Computed example of a mutant assay.
Amino acid sequence: MKNLILDKLEEIEDEFHVKVLFAVESGSRAWGYSSNDSDYDVRFIYCPSPQWYLSIDPQGVGGKKDVIEVPINNDLDMNGWEITKALRLFRKSNPTIFEWLKSEIVYYQVPTFFEQLNALELSVFNTKVCLYHYFNIARTNYRKCSQNSKLYFYVLRSLFVCHWIVKNQTFPPIHFEQLLQILDINNELKVEINTLLNLKRNSNILGFHGDFKAINEFIEHELIRLQEFLNSHTVSCIDHTEQLNHLFRETLKTVWGNSI
């Protein structure tokens, strides 16, 4: 599959006249609980040619789309963000970008871009933005878990991420079991979570309607605790626009040279 993904990335570069800066796996395969029928969710950041930027229309307006979306084919779901869009979202501490940076399944990267973006992570990271994002995912999906047991993973993983952020003030690893290992939880809860994992990995979870008493108690306790923390939590923000402008310009030169 990796060779197919790399071939598709080359096709995207040729078709859209862009350079891919990095491409990673996202979703259940990156999170460590994929099943046999899970799609490959490839996400990437790309850089159009200098000519694309030298026009009277700004990025994202009219014909200057700042995303590339490839129709799902052969269980392969691919889409990417244009570099300035990605950097603006990174500046806002967008959790999606942070998850891409933490993915352990990397298909392609321009090392200088990847390393410089990673170097800015700690200073750009905003705990409150990310906590609200994952708290809302957990709260919203928990209401629907009785109809779809698969949603427990979105809830639990989001709460695990929040636990890490509160404890360490950094963005965590994205693998489900890595996050699980840092939690001090009782054996009953571990057993129920492992039952869920086995069901998910064997594609049996959609038809399962078990009574996850320990999981439900954990979720409800964590939602209350996080809401209280968020109500009292404040964070100061630093503007990193100049560093990100520099990264954008240097990347443009690195991948395109003087081809204007």
Rank of each mutant, 00 (worst) to 15 (best):
L151I: 04
L183H: 05
K64T: 04
D77K: 04
G27C: 03
N36T: 11
S149A: 13
Y46S: 13
F218Y: 15
N202D: 07
L87S: 13
Y154G: 01
I238A: 01
N79P: 06
C47A: 14
E250S: 13
A23R: 02
Q109E: 12
G207E: 14
S28Q: 08
L21Q: 05
D239M: 00
E10G: 03
I182S: 10
F90V: 04
D211Y: 15
D211R: 15
F16V: 06
N36S: 14
F176H: 10
D7H: 15
N194C: 02
F208M: 14
V161W: 02
M1E: 09
T112F: 08
W100M: 01
K150L: 05
E69H: 04
S158K: 07
N79I: 04
V20K: 04
A86T: 08
T195W: 00
L183A: 02
Y132N: 12
W52H: 12
I182M: 14
A23N: 06
D66S: 04
E104C: 02
N118L: 14
W164S: 13
L89R: 13
T241Y: 03
F176V: 08
F176Q: 07
D75V: 00
V70R: 15
S158H: 07
T195D: 07
G63S: 00
W100T: 00
R157T: 00
P111M: 06
T112C: 04
S28C: 07
F90G: 09
N186V: 07
K64G: 05
I185S: 08
I205P: 06
L183P: 02
V70A: 14
N94I: 04
A30K: 08
P71W: 11
E99K: 02
L180E: 05
N202M: 01
Q227F: 02
L156M: 02
P95V: 06
G207L: 10
L101K: 10
H133R: 13
K85F: 07
D7A: 15
L252A: 13
S28E: 13
I68C: 11
A119D: 12
N168D: 13
E222A: 05
F176E: 11
I165K: 07
F90S: 05
E69Y: 00
Q51D: 14
S35W: 04
I260F: 15
V20W: 02
D75K: 11
F218T: 10
A138E: 07
R91H: 15
E99T: 07
W164H: 15
F98S: 06
G257M: 10
N126V: 03
L6C: 05
A23F: 06
I185F: 05
K92Q: 13
L122T: 02
Q116C: 08
Q178L: 13
V129F: 03
Q169H: 06
Y132D: 14
S259R: 15
R201H: 06
Y46T: 09
L9V: 03
H240A: 00
H209S: 14
G80Y: 03
V161A: 11
I219R: 11
T241C: 03
N186P: 01
L122G: 06
L252R: 10
Q147L: 03
Y108C: 01
T234I: 00
